[in-house]
């Protein structure tokens, strides 16, 4: 049975796996951070947010000295599962750690979420 946890992530409860909601591909154990099962790419934020003014610093875009974008892709279909805006080198965010045992108990009767 699969439970949809986010826009792009399901958990297969029997196999205890994070899966892509779009293509169904397996990512990694549901007891691990799903980000370990993704492909990661670091971006200069100005690639997405082009500076609006011509000022070198205060231009309505992000300063790459302060922040970078990390994009997390499904390795099977390339959908962007999530992103993070972090200072360069800052540890990543383990943003969702579901209690898998509690989730299994909740869905023990079967059905879909």
């Amino acid at each position: 049975m699969r439970v949809r946890i986010t826009e792009y992530l399901d958990i297969d409860l029997e196999r205890e796996l994070w899966c892509c909601n779009r293509c169904g591909g397996d990512l990694i154990s549901a007891r691990e951070p799903y980000k370990r099962g993704c492909l990661l790419h670091e971006r200069d934020p100005r690639e997405i947010h082009k500076p609006i003014s011509d000022h070198p610093v205060f231009n309505y875009s992000f300063d790459p000295d302060w922040v970078r974008i990390i994009e997390f892709y499904c390795p099977h279909c390339g959908v962007m599962v999530e992103n993070e805006y972090l200072p360069p080198g800052h540890p990543l965010t383990n943003d969702i750690q579901p209690d898998i045992d509690a989730l299994k108990r909740k869905h023990a009767g079967g059905g879909t979420s």
Binding site: E7, H55, F58, Y60, F62, D63, E71, Y85
Partner: peptide, 19 residues
């Protein structure tokens, strides 16, 4: 001024800075 407090969700990009 150079970062943002307007985050996106589930892969959405953020609202940009505001000097």
């Amino acid at each position: 001024d150079v970062i943002s407090h307007n985050p996106g969700l589930f892969g959405g990009y953020w609202g940009p800075p505001n000097p």
